[in-house]
Nucleic acid binder design. Sequence first.
DNA 1: TCTGAAATTAATACCGC
DNA 2: GCGGTATTAATTTCAGA
Lengths: 153, 153
Amino acid sequence: MALDSIDKEILRILQRDGRLSNRDLAAAVGLSAAPCLRRVQRLEEQGYISGYAALVDRDLVGRGLTVFVTVRLAQHTKHAIERFEAEVGKDPAVLECHWTAGETDYLLKVAVADLPGLDRFLLDRMTRIPGVATLQSGIAIRTVKHTTAVPVD
Amino acid sequence: MALDSIDKEILRILQRDGRLSNRDLAAAVGLSAAPCLRRVQRLEEQGYISGYAALVDRDLVGRGLTVFVTVRLAQHTKHAIERFEAEVGKDPAVLECHWTAGETDYLLKVAVADLPGLDRFLLDRMTRIPGVATLQSGIAIRTVKHTTAVPVD
DNA sequence: TCTGAAATTAATACCGC
DNA sequence: GCGGTATTAATTTCAGA
C-alpha cells in the first residue's frame, strides 16, 4: 500500500515526462525493466496515477486567456447547486471548479480566447444558469508558473 | 501551420489519454500509423503539444488540500517582483502562480496536506519572502471539476 | 522481488501511390 | 499528403535466483 522511495521517484519522473519509455524510466530509478513496469502498473491500479495527458499550448490553440471567475449563488438549495455543477461540468472552457470556503461559493478556472470570449462565456453561459447571483473575474495578465506536478515526498 | 480537423482530434484524444499508442490513435482518427505519427511529431515540434504528464492523485500522495492564495506586494519594484516570482517558482507546493488584474497582485494555487500544512506554507514560506504585504487563502472544500484538457476547436 | 532472456507488440523509416 | 511493408525498438511475460 505505502510507497517506497523508488515508487516516489517514479511518480516524480512520470509527472515530468509521462511518455518516458519504461526502459528509460527503469534506468533512471536503477531497476531493470520488468520490476519497473510492475511498479508503474501497481501505481496505476491503485490510483496513484489517475491518468496520462498531453499538455497542450493554450496560446497556440486559441485559448490563451486564463480567467479565475468567482461565483456566488442566490440560494444554496440542493437543486441550485446540482444545476450549477452540472452546467459547469459540461462546459469545456471551465478547466477547474472548486467549492470554496469564504465569501464566494465557487472558484472557476476558465480558458477563453480573449476578452470578447470572456464576455461570451459570462453572458451566454454563466448568467444563464439559474441561481447564479454574482460573478467576479480575475484575469491572469501573466502566468508566472504552471505545473501539473504535485510534490511527492 | 494551421490545424485541420484531424490534428484537432489528435489533440483532443491525447489530452484525454497521453499514453495512447500511435496505432490506436491512428485508428481513432481514421488514419494509418505512419501519417498519424507524422502529425503527432509535427504537433510536438511546433509546440502544440508542450509535453506529456502522468496525473497523480493528490489525496493519495498526501497533498489533498488545494488552496488559492492571493498575494499583495508592498511595493511593485522590479526587485520585489523578481524575488517573489523566483521564490514561488522553486516552491513545489505552488502549482500555479498568476499575475492578475484587479485588487491583488498574484493568485497562487497551492497543494498542501492539510490545514497545518497550509499554516506552514504561509508562515514559513510566504511571509518570509521580502515584499509580501498581505495574504488571503481560499480553501477548496470540494473540487467539482478538474481537467487539464483545453478545448480545441 | 529482482534479473535476464524470450515472445509479443509497437514505433518508425522507406518507398510507391 | 496517405498507405503498406520492413526494420528497429519497446513492452510484457516468464523462468530462475
